[in-house]
């Protein structure tokens, strides 16, 4: 199976992968440097914000030393290479938000939360969305299908913030099944079954807020369209003509053919979860990478911002790369001989 052509293919894709990452890094770096935010000024301002008594001369000296401490000195070129080195070694140095805790530690603290919530939610939304969409297309014209479509068309355009607040209001306030605060409870420290249940309970609302628009929104609509297309394809009709049963056709013909683009989309979606889900995290006070990145950017913490963004870049690039590599294995039409 492993032919020279295949190796060439993988090699060319790998080159693209590397180039993408490098380019993305450079653009990110330029954007971060172009921000009119100064971490040092922010810190000094927060110290003096409420009129606390500080010695003015001491502030002047502090300002100078902070610049050095945070490694914000040096020309842009120097800084570029310094950050490039950090990026390649995946060691982003100390953060500014929580100096001198290393950026890596901050990210690792949040990573399992983000990956857990988003990974889970995206996959579930994808699965349910595809099932519903396929059903809606297969039973096209029936009341069930029409109902599903109407629900989807109504829910899809609802802004996420509103959806989240409505969920909170309904299920954490009116009918208090879920707690108002998400994330970890006291019990969640440790791996006991009680901790796991507690974690699930506290994470359900944020997960729902992502799953519902997902499964009734994009995944539903796209899978429905895809299924309708496949159903009207010649080969599907031919399969019917040959007397193949409905369920078989759905499995072998419809699902097989729509799963190709849908899996690609899923792969890409999973690649993007490393940038977190900022709105979800803010509204539900759920720990995650999105908020970390937001705070980093707002406070001018280049290292942390770069750290999270790098993760995101690598995530998406890797997902694309993997998809590129395994796609020929799934779709026979795209094979190189």
């Amino acid at each position: 199976m492993v032919s020279r052509a295949l190796l060439m293919y993988i090699a060319s894709r790998a080159a693209t992968f590397a180039a993408t990452i490098f380019l993305a890094f450079t653009i990110t770096f330029l954007l971060l440097r172009a921000m009119p935010v100064s971490a040092v000024e922010n810190i000094i301002a927060s110290m003096t914000a409420q009129g606390q008594v500080y010695d003015p001369k001491a502030l002047i000296q502090l300002r100078r030393s902070l610049y050095e401490l945070f490694g914000l000195t040096g020309s842009p070129v120097e800084q570029y290479f310094r950050f490039l080195y950090r990026f390649l070694t995946l060691d982003f140095g100390p953060s500014i938000l929580a100096f001198p805790t290393p950026v890596r530690e901050l990210i690792m603290n949040r990573l399992p939360w983000t990956v857990g919530l988003l990974g889970f939610s995206v996959v579930i939304a994808w699965i349910i969305g595809n099932i519903l969409g396929t059903l809606a297309a297969v039973f096209e014209g029936t009341k069930l299908s029409k109902a599903l479509q109407s629900i989807a068309l109504v829910i899809y355009p609802i802004p996420y913030y509103i959806m989240a607040l409505v969920l909170i209001y309904l299920f954490a306030y009116l009918i208090p099944i879920f707690p108002l605060t998400s994330g970890a409870g006291v019990l969640t420290q440790g791996l006991t079954p009680a901790a796991i249940m507690d974690l699930i309970r506290r994470s359900t609302l944020p997960a729902l807020s992502i799953i519902i628009p997902g499964m009734l929104g994009w995944w539903f609509l796209s899978s429905r369209t895809l299924t309708l297309n496949v159903l009207s394809e010649d080969y599907t009709v031919y399969a019917e003509l040959r007397g193949l049963p409905r369920s078989y056709i759905l499995r072998r013909y419809v699902l097989r053919n729509i799963l190709l683009p849908q899996t690609t989309a899923l792969g890409l979606a999973l690649g993007t979860i490393f940038s977190g889900a900022l709105l979800t995290e803010v509204i539900f006070a759920y720990p995650g990478l999105g908020q970390l990145m937001y705070r980093a950017i707002a406070n001018g913490d280049y290292s942390t911002a770069l750290g999270v963004l790098s993760l995101s870049i690598i995530g998406v690039a890797t997902a694309t790369f993997i998809l590129d590599i395994i796609y020929p294995f799934i779709d026979p039409r795209v094979r190189y001989r």
């Binding site: 010649d234 080969y235 009709v237 031919y238 399969a239 003509l241 040959r242 007397g243 193949l244 049963p245 078989y248 072998r252 013909y253 097989r256 053919n257 190709l260 779709d331 026979p332 039409r333």
Partner: peptide, 26 residues
Amino acid sequence: YIPQNAMNVLNPTSRIRDHFAEVLRL
């Protein structure tokens, strides 16, 4: 039945033997 446009009626993601197998198994 041999349908019109028969060149396009085969499932692009299945091998020929599977097409036969489908019918034979069913």
